[in-house]
Nucleic acid binder design. Structure first.
Lengths: 205, 205
DNA sequence: CTCCAATGTGAGGGTAGCCTCACATATCTG
DNA sequence: CAGATATGTGAGGCTACCCTCACATTGGAG
């Protein structure tokens, strides 16, 4: 009873060799997406870069989208882990520290993982189910963080506030593309200040 | 001495009939972009919807990108006009009123002009020169607005602040897609509050 | 009316990428 | 070793789109 259907495409690897191939394919895909963007990279390129044939690629990934999804799942796990870590430290941070961490968490991850940026930009056009799931779960983490930082806040006000914080984090990533560097840094500092002001208001009700 | 080169594609209309055709083509393109997205709509579709042949379309627009650019130019003019109007009223508004207007100006325009949204999303992937120009000029308007609202602010702090405000306006547009409506409205109100807090701090230095 | 530039047409050449398929090789199990 | 299953191959079918081109039609100027 195979876990997938019996068609040729879309099986998951059963042997060691298969797992290695999948890893090589994903690594190659990641590099291609970074260098040429999601839309511009072709399945043929990915296979060639991984030293595999096009048929081998289709054996494990029935579509280009499924390749992106597999990569995105990894990024999602890493992001969740960062949010968990954040959650642990919230009680020990004041408003300013929390604002800075929130701004940086997301922005730093994007800087360290360019393929996540490439995939995010591509997904932006036609929002995928996976993308929605990730955003939703990130918002849940923010709700937990806010519940700790602003314990007096009514439960019904938690979600809207989390949405605002989420948007401010996204704004921070948008600022990463700005030039020159001094202007960018000033803007990031100012954005952190704006977030701190808002967090302060939430906590002081 | 023609304004364009003498090749078949890319001429601008010389006669009344030509101008009408261009208008019909742009209108059709706008509708297609809204319904199917920029990437998915084809030049053939645009021509068919305008009741023109594919050759006629290429006569005036050498590439799909040039169609998008023509539409974007119209949107840019309309947006500049709105910012001018905003600029006139700034002296009479308090911080809260200004925050609300800033949040709504951009968000309202997107609601009224879906084709602008479609084009923005498409341009997001590979930033165009026109897109950069528009964002830059919008930022200049924000600098002027802030100079009025926060006269004590140092000239060097104007641009970073404008960038932050610009990002908050963009955040407001992102919230437009949220469901359900009550949650969306709460979040928008909260975002307006965050902007007001930031504007207040800028003005009170 | 005549002529010419502007406008209009749509079949089709060229390109490119997605994915399949028939078959080959590798690895495991007994 | 023998059978079974997983993995590997790449030529090519298929589709879709961009854009050109040779030619037709229109409308205004002289």
């Amino acid at each position: 009873m195979p876990s997938q259907n019996s068609s040729q495409s879309g099986r998951s690897p059963q042997r060691q060799r298969g797992r290695e191939r999948v890893a090589a394919l994903l690594s190659a895909a990641s590099a291609c997406f970074v260098e040429r963007g999601y839309d511009a990279t072709t399945m043929t390129e990915i296979a060639a870069r991984a030293g595999a044939s096009i048929g081998s690629l289709y054996q494990f990934f029935p579509t280009k989208e499924s390749v992106a999804e597999a990569l995105m799942l990894d990024h999602a796990e890493a992001l969740y882990a960062r949010m968990e870590r954040l959650l642990e430290h919230v009680p020990g941070w004041d408003t300013n520290e929390l604002a800075g961490r929130l701004i940086r968490t997301f922005a730093d991850y994007r800087k360290q993982h360019p393929s996540f940026v490439a995939l995010q930009e591509a997904t932006g056009s036609q929002p995928s189910l996976l993308g929605r799931t990730i955003r939703q779960r990130m918002r849940d983490y923010l709700c937990q963080i806010l519940a700790i930082h602003a314990p007096k806040l009514a439960a019904g006000d938690l979600r809207p506030a989390a949405m605002v914080v989420q948007q401010l984090m996204k704004a921070a990533t948008a600022l990463q593309n700005e030039q020159p560097a001094t202007l960018r840094q000033s803007a990031q500092t100012q954005l952190q200040r704006a977030l701190a002001l808002y967090l302060q208001e939430l906590a002081s009700e």
